[in-house]
C-alpha cells in the first residue's frame, strides 16, 4: 500500500455564506483515533460530497455533524452552526437533529404507513393541525419527487415500496421537518442505477433550499451532483475544493491517485 504524507493538505477557502463548519474535530472509538483535526466549512445551499475509501472516516465525520455519534464515539473539537458550538455538552441534541436531518445508507422507513412515516417527526413536535399536516405531507413528498407515485396509497405500508422509493420516502421524512441541512450517508449505494439517478435529481432540486452534505463511494456521483468535494484518507482530510477542480486538477498526489484509481 502506498503511504501518503498526511501533512500535505489542501483546503480551499470558501467565500460563500457558511451553513455549518467544523474546527479541529477529533473522533476516538475507544483507543483508536478515527478522525484527525477535521476542519471544513460547508457553503449554504450547495451540495458537498465526502469521498474516500472504506474506513477513511467520512461516515464517522458526517455523523458528528448532527450528534449521531453520541454514546458511540468520543467527539472533540468545535462544530459551529449558527455561531453555536453544537458539539458542546449543554446543547439540546434533539433540537440539533431537527435542524440537521440525516438519511442513512440503507432505506429505513418505519413499519408504518407512508403518511405516518412522514408525519412521525411533526407529531412528535406537537404539530397536530390537520391542514398543516396535510400540507407538509404533500410538499415534502413532492419535494422528494415521490408524490406522483404514492399519492393514492398514502395509507399503505411504507415497506411495500421499492428500495428507491423507500429511500426517497426517507428523504421526504427528513425534509418534512424543514431542516436547514440534510446529511446523506451513501444514500444510493443500495439502489439500482435508475433509482440512483432519481435520487440525484431529487438532491439537485433540494439543493435550492437545503444545504446538502453527502457521503458517497461513487466518484461519478460526486462529480455529477456536488459543488464541493472533500477527500478523506485514513481519518485525515486530504483535499477540499470545488468539485470541478478536484476532479480535473487535484492539488495533492493522494487525491489524484484515488480519483484515477491508482490507489492503495
Amino acid at each position: 500500500m502506498k503511504t501518503y504524507d498526511f501533512n500535505q493538505q489542501y483546503i480551499s477557502k470558501i467565500d460563500k455564506e457558511i451553513a455549518i463548519s467544523t474546527d479541529n474535530v477529533q473522533v476516538h472509538y475507544g483507543k483508536s483515533h478515527a478522525i484527525f483535526d477535521a476542519s471544513l466549512d460547508f457553503p449554504r445551499f450547495q451540495i458537498t460530497s465526502l469521498i474516500g475509501a472504506s474506513g477513511s472516516g467520512k461516515s464517522t465525520y458526517l455523523r458528528c455533524l448532527n450528534r449521531m455519534n453520541d454514546k458511540i464515539a468520543q467527539v472533540d473539537g468545535k462544530i459551529l452552526y449558527r455561531n453555536t458550538d453544537i458539539n458542546s455538552k449543554k446543547i439540546n441534541v434533539y433540537e440539533v437533529r431537527r435542524h440537521i436531518g440525516m438519511v442513512f445508507q440503507r432505506p429505513n422507513p418505519f413499519a408504518k404507513s407512508i403518511k405516518d412515516n412522514i408525519l412521525f417527526a411533526l407529531r412528535n413536535n406537537g404539530i397536530n393541525d390537520k391542514n398543516e399536516l396535510q400540507k407538509r405531507l404533500e410538499t415534502s413528498l413532492k419535494d422528494a419527487a415521490l408524490w406522483d407515485e404514492v399519492k393514492d396509497d398514502l395509507d399503505k405500508s411504507a415497506l411495500a415500496l421499492s428500495g428507491g422509493q423507500q429511500q426517497r420516502l426517507c428523504i421526504a421524512r427528513s425534509i418534512a421537518m424543514h431542516p436547514d441541512i440534510l446529511l446523506l450517508d451513501e444514500p444510493a449505494s443500495a439502489l439500482d442505477p435508475i433509482s440512483t439517478s432519481k435520487i440525484e435529481e431529487t438532491l439537485e432540486l433540494l439543493s435550492k433550499s437545503y444545504t446538502i452534505i453527502i457521503v458517497t463511494h461513487n466518484m461519478q456521483q460526486a462529480s455529477r451532483i456536488s459543488d464541493y468535494t472533500a477527500f478523506f484518507h485514513m481519518g485525515h482530510i486530504i483535499e477540499y475544493n470545488e468539485t470541478k477542480n478536484i476532479f480535473t486538477a487535484p492539488e495533492i498526489k493522494a487525491t489524484e491517485d484515488y480519483i484515477s484509481g491508482d490507489f492503495g
Partner: peptide, 8 residues
C-alpha cells in the same frame, strides 16, 4: 437511528 435522526 432513523427516529433519533428525525429529532425524536
Amino acid at each position: 437511528q432513523a427516529s433519533l435522526a428525525l429529532g425524536a
